[in-house]
Simulated scan of single mutants.
Amino acid sequence: MRSATHSGSRAAQRTSDDALLARVQHGDEPAVRALITRYNQQLFRVARGILRNDSEAEDVVQEAYLHAFTRLDDFRHESAFSTWLTHIVLNQASNRLRKNRRRKAQLSQLAEETRTPSGATLVVFPTSPRPATPEAQAVRHEIQKILETAVDNLRTPLRMVFILRDIEGMSTNETAELLSIRPETVKTRLYRARQWMRSTLERSFAPCFQDMHPFEDKQCLDMADRVIITLAQRLNNAKN
Rank of each mutant, 00 (worst) to 15 (best):
P207C: 00
C208K: 15
K187C: 09
R159N: 05
R198W: 03
P183E: 03
D166C: 15
L179P: 05
M197L: 02
K187H: 13
V161A: 02
C208Q: 10
L147G: 00
A150E: 08
T156Y: 07
T188S: 14
M170Q: 10
D166E: 08
T200D: 14
Q195F: 15
Y191P: 05
T200I: 13
E177V: 08
T156V: 14
P183Q: 06
S199R: 15
E202N: 11
T156Q: 15
R194W: 10
S199F: 06
A206S: 05
Y191R: 15
R155M: 11
R192T: 07
E148K: 08
T200G: 03
Q195P: 06
P207D: 00
L178T: 05
E148W: 10
M197W: 01
S171E: 14
I163A: 01
S204A: 12
T200A: 15
C208L: 08
F162C: 12
T185Y: 00
T149W: 15
W196Y: 15
E202P: 03
F162Q: 07
L164Q: 14
E202D: 13
A150V: 07
T188G: 07
T156W: 04
F162I: 03
N153L: 05
P183R: 05
R194Q: 13
M197N: 02
A176T: 11
F162W: 10
R165V: 09
A193Q: 01
T156P: 06
L201G: 00
E148G: 09
T172E: 10
E184W: 07
R198Q: 14
L164E: 05
S204R: 09
F209V: 06
N153A: 12
Y191M: 12
L158H: 11
L178D: 11
F209Y: 03
P157F: 02
R155W: 01
V151Q: 01
K187L: 11
V151Y: 01
V186R: 00
Y191F: 11
T200P: 10
V161R: 03
R182N: 10
M170R: 11
R155T: 14
R198N: 13
L201C: 09
L190N: 14
M170P: 01
P207R: 00
D152V: 07
R192P: 05
S204C: 13
L201K: 00
R159V: 11
E168A: 14
A176V: 03
E148D: 13
E174F: 09
P183H: 04
L154T: 06
S204T: 07
R189V: 03
L201Q: 03
L179C: 06
R159G: 15
A176P: 01
R203W: 01
A206W: 03
M160F: 00
R155N: 10
A150Q: 08
L154S: 03
S199Y: 11
A150G: 05
